[in-house]
Design a protein around this nucleic acid. Structure first.
Lengths: 244, 244
DNA sequence: CGCCCTACGTTGGCGGGCTAACGTTTTAAA
DNA sequence: TTTAAAACGTTAGCCCGCCAACGTAGGGCG
């Protein structure tokens, strides 16, 4: 889609994920110490004080990884989709080897969890798995950097707008219309991703809808008009901070 | 230091880094396609439009990885210290395999860069290197999640306070005083990390200093009184957002 | 010594995002 | 059906963090 699109090693993440999925599929059939478990809606995969001693791979469903401060405000760090690796903060988290985050299944979910040694062993045994894992790490890092880029913006339109572009690029589904993407997220979810109040998300999204940058209705997926939104955000007034 | 401190796999990151350093040291003596380069102060290691096709390892100096929006506002994503792996976003960045970030040396710096295939090959060839690389990925992920946790806070004292705690935990040096840590960062740097204005950082830091939570003077490293600051932040008034 | 440059300090004013407190619409459960 | 609970919509007011535009302190360099 970008004007100067050359041949990439992996054009997008779906390729990475498919690769990863296949390999983890083989992996789960190996006799290693990984156990598959099912989770009902809202069940916790781990809590902040749990030891961070395993890596997980999501087979089906959705899992949200959140972090909350002392006052109970919750930030969504990561929404894990099928065939994604997660929980990799293991082995070196600073505060006593604990998770410091909460992982909950959204709806039904099925996940495979591996111990650290089991994970390393599998990486050594299967070269292609190593490649897939590196890809997975890179995707996560890229995702988090993009999240920081979103949170560093101070205007509400800037934050929500760029969050939508990010979600569309990473988890968006193709829309019927051309140059648009479907994003499944409630205003409340967007608020907890952008660290804004829910009502202000609604107000901002309302403005976007009036300008024809997005389309949505109650309980239906958002339609993001990518080019129009991008152009609008680029033309936003320049609020610069104190200079030298 | 935490009350319930059990035996950890790696008590802190210095262990990871030492391990990594040693291994990369061996690595650089292997005849693989990695080349070492020196950079003068302010020189760019890469620019946003450069292809993201290599992994780097910092031997000496400091490198800042930043991202800037369309209006030229700059956010510091990562300050790389000696013996750290960086530039791992390679192989799957969405926008055409470009960096989308800028890496500049702060002062003099020396870095080794490996191609993707060279990196993977080295991981396969040296099992201990694999372990070090996984550690490195985990550190980066943990760091970025903590940054998100900081940026998600809206009060200035909350943001700067938690940023200081984070910096003290990750890059802090032991202070003469007990329960304190030294952090080397200017107000301007803190501002670009917390996405705040420089002047407001100065105001907030001034308040912290008056309360005895930090100590600093011009051009000297900050002294952060960890326990006191933590307690102060926990007692901050509860600004909660609109509930159900 | 005088110069520049960086880093920290200070204030006034203003705008935008949060809080609070509602209302409306739709889905799911009882 | 009734009730409850999400999810989206709206407004008023206030606080706080940004902006602008200064001032001050020191370090490095000629």
């Amino acid at each position: 889609m970008p004007p100067s699109s050359e041949r990439l090693f992996f054009p997008d993440h779906s390729a990475c994920r498919t690769l990863t999925a296949t390999l983890y599929d083989e992996l789960s059939q190996q006799p290693i110490e990984g156990r598959e478990r099912d989770f009902v809606a809202g069940e916790a995969l781990w809590l902040p004080h749990d030891p961070a001693d395993s890596v997980c791979f999501l087979r089906a469903g959705q899992v949200s990884v959140t972090r909350e401060d002392s006052h109970g405000h919750e930030v969504i760090l990561h929404v894990v989709g099928p065939d994604e690796l997660f929980g990799e903060l293991c082995f070196c988290s600073r505060e006593g080897g604990r998770r410091n985050t909460t992982a909950r299944s959204v709806g039904f979910a099925r996940a495979v969890c591996l111990s650290y040694s089991g994970f390393l062993g599998a990486l050594r045994a299967m070269p292609e798995l190593l490649e897939a894992a590196v890809q997975s790490f890179c995707v996560r890092l890229s995702d988090l950097e993009e999240r920081i880029d979103v949170l560093a913006r101070q205007s509400a339109e800037d934050r929500i707008g760029h969050l939508l572009l990010h979600l569309a690029a990473s988890k968006g589904e193709p829309a019927s219309e051309d140059g648009a993407a479907l994003v499944r997220a409630s205003h409340d979810t967007l608020a907890r991703m952008a660290a804004m109040s829910r009502s202000h998300v609604t107000v901002t999204m309302g403005r976007f809808r009036q300008r024809g940058l997005v389309d949505y209705a109650r309980r239906t997926p958002l339609t993001v008009h990518l080019a129009a939104l991008r152009e609008y955000l680029a033309d936003l007034p320049d609020r610069r901070r104190d200079g030298p």
